[in-house]
Simulated scan of single mutants.
Amino acid sequence: MPMEKKGPYIITEQPGTKYYCACGMSKTPPYCDGSHKGTGKHPSRVEILEEKEVAVCSCCRSADFPWCDGSHNAPGN
């Protein structure tokens, strides 16, 4: 996947609606840029209620996507 990097994107998010890439093809990771069109995949929509630091999954394997759960550390990854 082009988006994949080792470890999550650590971001201080501001309140508002965020769309995180779930296809791995965005040129603006971890945010969706519409590159998923035609793939059958859709971005993860999240409402951030207050400023906070988040760890956004970069490998698209998290069971708690879009949040990082450490799946990038699993054997074979």
Rank of each mutant, 00 (worst) to 15 (best):
R61Q: 11
K6D: 15
G40I: 06
G7D: 12
A55W: 05
P43S: 03
Y31W: 15
Y31M: 04
D33E: 10
M1G: 14
S44Y: 00
H36G: 03
P8D: 05
E13Q: 08
T17A: 03
H42C: 01
P66M: 10
S26R: 12
H42V: 02
S71I: 13
N77V: 12
V54G: 10
M1K: 14
S71N: 09
K37R: 15
C57Q: 05
K18L: 08
Q14F: 00
P2V: 08
Y20D: 02
E50I: 05
W67F: 15
P29G: 12
P43D: 01
P43Q: 02
Y9C: 03
T39L: 05
I11Q: 03
K18T: 05
G34P: 10
E51Q: 14
V46T: 15
K6Y: 09
S35Y: 04
A22M: 07
P2N: 10
Y20A: 06
T17H: 03
G34L: 04
T12G: 05
C57T: 09
C68R: 07
K37F: 09
F65K: 12
S62W: 10
F65W: 10
I10E: 09
C57F: 11
E51H: 07
C57G: 07
F65I: 11
Y31I: 01
T17W: 04
A63V: 08
G70R: 12
P2H: 08
N77G: 05
T28I: 11
P2Q: 15
G7Q: 10
V54F: 10
C23W: 04
A74F: 15
I10M: 04
P30K: 08
A22H: 10
Y20Q: 06
P8N: 04
C32Q: 07
V56Y: 01
